[in-house]
Nucleic acid binder design. Structure first.
Lengths: 186, 186
DNA sequence: TTTGTTTCGGGACGATCGTTCAGGTAGTTT
DNA sequence: AAACTACCTGAACGATCGTCCCGAAACAAA
């Protein structure tokens, strides 16, 4: 196994990461529709040709962004569960809080994630990445009841996407009874 | 109240409807990103200037399309429930079948609906239209348990959006146990 | 018929788009 | 040192974009 020693490649990877970050910010602000080479380059503070050099096409850029975004989300979910577990949390309380956060302060990010989600519906090569956070969850929690777990996952997605078209984001207090019902064993 | 008698306006309304229909087909095929005046006009078989004449901007066109789409969906849901009710259906069976249909033969339409849904997340003026089918459902079914009903609606949305990124659409048989669990009173 | 209103559509304008190219720079290898 | 590789970037090309203009056509009211 060879380590990264080439300074040129190191810079290249760094810039790639910066461009991906800029792309995500553009999607949060203007949606996938607002992603162009020039806009992303301006957001990243690099010349336009830099984005076309590192990503062979706009599609490649979006794909790389989705994959990066999905990876971040997966590790976030991982640590979130880990943290909740070590605290012996009941679960519903935590989940309601996270949903409220996703629909409030992190609303732009949540919209971006679902736009990339829908992009995966049209581009099969994106689907493994889009499913990753589901997989992480699936692999981490026990499934004594698989059906109940699928219902839970679907419910989370539904609450998020419906919360996005509310005139004002629902609070954790409003979400708690719904999440509680969703997680209650029966 | 004056009835529609002016032949010119009648033609105009007809063409407007054709353009909206063409827009929906374009969204089903290429996504919201594929909607341009020229493409929609070509799909509708009208000159490019016709779409700009009847809709003051591209946004207006998308808004009108979403509203039309939401209205269609609402009346569909209405009659679907009506039909199921007159048959004394159990419900879960019907719902699983509808989901399978939405993710199979009508997959393009379902994608279009969710893309317009997400558009509503960014454009507040679209939200009432996007919420309409939820409202129709809410007004038609008894809610002895409001929380359970919200969970049901969220679950449906979640199953749909997750089904869109499956490599192959889930069958009604696969969906049935999940829907059954979702609708089971507890 | 005359006058007014509404729809129709060809053509064009400036802006922005994705992408390419060629020359230049920095870092690595021999 | 020279040769090689990888990254950088200004300039430009052709295509497509949203939108506007303006005269023609269809229809209604007078």
């Amino acid at each position: 196994m060879k380590m990264q020693v080439d300074g040129r490649k190191a810079r290249g990877n760094k810039r790639r990461a910066e461009i991906i970050g800029a792309t995500l910010r553009v999607i949060e602000r203007d949606g996938v529709a607002g992603v162009t080479h020039r806009i992303v380059a301006a957001e990243a503070g690099v010349p336009t040709t830099s984005t076309t050099y590192h990503f062979s096409s706009l599609d490649d850029l979006l794909i790389a962004t989705l994959i990066s975004c999905a990876r971040d989300m997966a590790t976030e979910v991982y640590w979130m569960i880990d943290r909740a577990r070590s605290r012996g949390s009941r679960g519903a309380e935590e989940v309601a809080g996270l949903l409220a956060e996703a629909l409030g302060p992190r609303r732009g990010r949540t919209m971006a994630e679902y736009e990339l989600y829908l992009l995966a519906a049209r581009k099969p090569e994106l689907r493994p990445a889009a499913r990753r956070w589901l997989d992480v969850l699936t692999s981490m929690v026990r499934h004594d009841d698989e059906v109940a777990f699928r219902v839970f996952l679907a419910g989370i997605d539904g609450l998020l996407i419906q919360g996005l078209i509310d005139d004002e984001p629902p609070s954790a207090d409003e979400l708690r009874p719904v999440v509680d019902y969703l997680m209650k064993p029966r």
